[in-house]
C-alpha cells in the first residue's frame, strides 16, 4: 500500500527533526514554568479582596482567554516592537527576535490559563487550613508559601501537566513568526523533498507518542494521589 512512498526521507532528516523537537520541548518547558509563576501571582491577585489587585488581574485573564493564541504571538512579534519604537522614539529599535517574542507570548498566554487552574487549586484547600495557619501567627505570605500553595499544587499537578500537553501541541504555531520547531522542521523537509504524506504522518505519530505518554503519566499520578489522601 505504501509502495509509492519513500520513508527513508525521515531517516535522512532525523537530525534536523531532532533539533526541531528540542526547540519545541524547550519552548514548552520554559513557557510552562514562566506561565505557572506568573499564573500563581495572577491567581493571588484575583483572590485578593483589594480591587487594585483583583480587577487588573481578572481583566488580563479575561482578555487573553478570549483571544486566539496565534493573534497573541503576532502581537508580540509585530506590535510590541512598533509600540517600543513609538514610546521610546528610537526608530532604530528592533524587536527582541522571534524566539524571545514567542516565549513571552506563550508565557503570558499560558499564565491566563494557569491562573484559573491555580485559583481553583487554592480554593480547594479547606478554609480551616487557612485559619489554622493564621491562628499560629503566620502572616499571609508564610501561610501561602508553607501551608496553602504546597497543598494546592499537590492537588493540581495532574491538571497543570494536562495544560502543558496542550501547550506542547500549541507550540507548533510558532511557524507564523518563522521559527522552526518540530512541526516546522517536518513541514520544510516535506516541501523540499516533495514527501508531504510521509512527513506529516510521521509528525502526527511523534506528537501522538509524546502526548499519549504524557497523559499516561498524568493518569498514574492521579491514581497515586488518590491513594495517598
Amino acid at each position: 500500500m505504501f509502495s509509492g512512498f519513500d520513508f527513508d526521507v525521515i531517516q535522512r532528516a532525523l537530525p534536523y527533526l531532532g533539533q526541531g523537537m528540542l526547540f519545541s520541548l524547550g519552548l514548552t518547558v520554559l513557557a510552562m514554568l514562566g506561565g505557572i509563576v506568573l499564573g500563581t501571582l495572577l491567581a493571588l491577585m484575583r483572590l485578593s479582596h483589594f480591587r487594585l489587585f483583583n480587577l487588573p488581574a481578572s481583566g488580563y485573564v479575561n482578555l487573553l482567554r478570549s483571544t486566539p493564541l496565534i493573534l497573541v504571538i503576532f502581537w508580540f512579534y509585530f506590535l510590541v516592537p512598533l509600540a517600543v519604537k513609538k514610546i521610546t522614539g528610537d526608530t532604530y529599535a528592533t524587536g527582541i527576535g522571534p524566539f524571545h517574542s514567542a516565549l513571552i507570548a506563550f508565557t503570558m498566554f499560558e499564565a491566563a490559563y494557569y491562573c484559573e487552574i491555580i485559583r481553583a487549586g487554592i480554593q480547594s484547600v479547606p478554609s480551616g487550613q487557612v485559619n489554622a495557619a493564621y491562628a499560629l501567627g503566620l502572616n499571609y505570605r508564610q501561610a501561602m508559601m508553607r501551608v496553602i500553595l504546597p497543598q494546592a499544587f499537590r492537588n493540581m499537578i495532574p491538571i497543570l501537566l494536562t495544560q502543558g500537553i496542550i501547550l506542547f501541541q500549541d507550540t507548533s504555531l510558532v511557524y507564523v513568526v518563522g521559527l522552526t520547531d518540530f512541526m516546522g522542521a517536518a513541514s520544510k523537509i516535506a516541501q523540499r523533498d516533495g514527501r508531504l504524506v510521509e512527513m506529516y504522518l510521521f509528525a502526527a505519530l511523534v506528537y501522538f507518542v509524546f502526548c499519549f505518554a504524557a497523559s499516561y503519566l498524568v493518569k498514574s499520578l492521579q491514581a497515586r494521589y488518590k491513594v495517598s489522601r
Binding site: G128, Q129, N131, A132, A133, A135, G137, L138, V147
Partner: peptide
C-alpha cells in the same frame, strides 16, 4: 495570634508535613 493557642474541631494539622514539622513550622 502567636500568643493565643487555638485548637479546632477538625484538627487542621497540615497534611503535607510530618507531626514534628507541624509543631516546628510556626
Amino acid at each position: 495570634r502567636s500568643r493565643i493557642g487555638m485548637v479546632f474541631q477538625n484538627f487542621e494539622l497540615f497534611p503535607h508535613m510530618t507531626v514534628t514539622d507541624n509543631i516546628c513550622l510556626a
